[in-house]
Design a protein around this nucleic acid. Sequence first.
DNA 1: CTCTCTTTTACTCAACCTGAGCAAAAGCGA
DNA 2: TCGCTTTTGCTCAGGTTGAGTAAAAGAGAG
Lengths: 297, 297
Amino acid sequence: MAYMAEVSLEAAIVAVTDDTPRVLTVDQEGGPALPSGSLGDRDPTLELALRRWITDQTGIEVGYVEQLYTFGDLARHRLDSDGGRRRIGVAYLALIREAPPQPGATWVDWYRLLPWEDHRHGRPAVLEEIAARLGAWTGRDEERRERAQISFGLDGTPWDPVRVLDRYELLYGAGLVRERALDHPDERSGGELGRHMAWDHRRVAATALGRLRGKLTYRPVVFELLAREFTLAQLQGVVEALLGTTLHTQNFRRLVSQQGLVDDTGRTASTGGRPARLYRFRRGVLLERAGPGLWRR
Amino acid sequence: MAYMAEVSLEAAIVAVTDDTPRVLTVDQEGGPALPSGSLGDRDPTLELALRRWITDQTGIEVGYVEQLYTFGDLARHRLDSDGGRRRIGVAYLALIREAPPQPGATWVDWYRLLPWEDHRHGRPAVLEEIAARLGAWTGRDEERRERAQISFGLDGTPWDPVRVLDRYELLYGAGLVRERALDHPDERSGGELGRHMAWDHRRVAATALGRLRGKLTYRPVVFELLAREFTLAQLQGVVEALLGTTLHTQNFRRLVSQQGLVDDTGRTASTGGRPARLYRFRRGVLLERAGPGLWRR
DNA sequence: CTCTCTTTTACTCAACCTGAGCAAAAGCGA
DNA sequence: TCGCTTTTGCTCAGGTTGAGTAAAAGAGAG
């Protein structure tokens, strides 16, 4: 009845600087990996264990932390060294305000990993290639066609920023994206889409992005990524960076002020145009509102 | 670096019959428990492992399955027998259409576990007691007061069906609800709210209910709980049962038909009044829509 | 010192969605 | 045939959303 397994905690540690969302990675054979650590016998909770080793390893004190998913697929998680045993990974999303340089670790642009997700400057060019290669995989399979259409917003179907995982899974299923260096040895067939990572870590990164985008609609989490004081343009910039789309500025600020998410500090910052007011997050809302999000699907 | 732990898979298996949502429990010292099983070395994925042991143990083939959360608090999960080691539980929500009688297991009304959650017949009476006892715990702590107010919809604040876990955590923090038989030995102070369960399983049940209620807003999961053919009233009944609130009938059916969630079978069922059309779930929508939910917050 | 550029901010308006209610339709049993 | 119940269709006011026009406020060029 009792089943023992190797359990590790993996973290997608995210920061947004210069309107670029970045994930912390460490080098590993098989490609860049998410930092991971293990539970200690004395850690009272999983989350505290996570915070502990993140601080130990990087010196970073993470702010917001959220459990994402627990992975344990044999195919993706088997320890090659140890034929039978399974590795179980509890994945977390962690948000921090700045991306301090890390010796031995690299901040990777999230959209280097998932280049088809950034639509801030129009539909990215990769999507043409993806559509074509997916078309080949689809054939005359009606269900595949529909899945591709919905996930990637083909043929006039709207693009849904939240469906990150759908898209990743589809690409993986179609063999357009690889996990671990070992998959798809016949790589010549078209070049790699985005940068792969070790293990199934790119999938974890995709899960994290989707979750974060979704959360943005109903919880004020962006503030965990911003400095204490910020202009509305900065706020919008971070939201757009995560969402991978642009928002209508006037409506965005209407939303923010209606929701009462921020307090005016009275001060201003100069920005090259009309100086912008500086705001501060109103802590109160954390408790108050059911769902003060910053965009609607 | 490698940390071995005992990993188990726990399931909140849910069915709705006669507009009553029920959870399958097994008897255990410490109270009723959610059924749980363990991974096998050969199970390709965690979800398949879950399905396997559910079928082995109960004969049930579950339909919809969703991972909820991974629990591993030392305080709540320590194996008393084995001082140090930690038990890690990966909890799942599983939906099935009927609640077949189970030898050695019991279907418990979800609202026996969480009686304050059912508002279909007006605000339940327990809430008076809860408000009073929470008031005592609150004292003049402003933050506690606000948390209680928001979570339980006190003083005119609206009741949010989704905040199940908030409410449970608050009650737990205030000592009004117990986990495991051991907690709160001075139980005379006011009687127990709802029925407790073994381990932290009532918390898992609360997590499951909250997640399910939330999911209802943006994914057509109810159909996993309904017979293949149903009337709109039955559909509404199940949604209301899960939500613990009543809905405006005319608007509910407007929503359902606008979303194109169902197909008319042409047949009708007699119901004591005007006969109702029988509908069937339109499989297509599973792929199509970004978010066809059945209520809005 | 004035003009132009950029960014921030204020306001407007049509289209749509939501919550609530009125009322008719269709069987059933007295 | 009448009254009861449930199902179904429709309306309407109020609010929200998406999109646009335009003014305000500094910075820098000339």
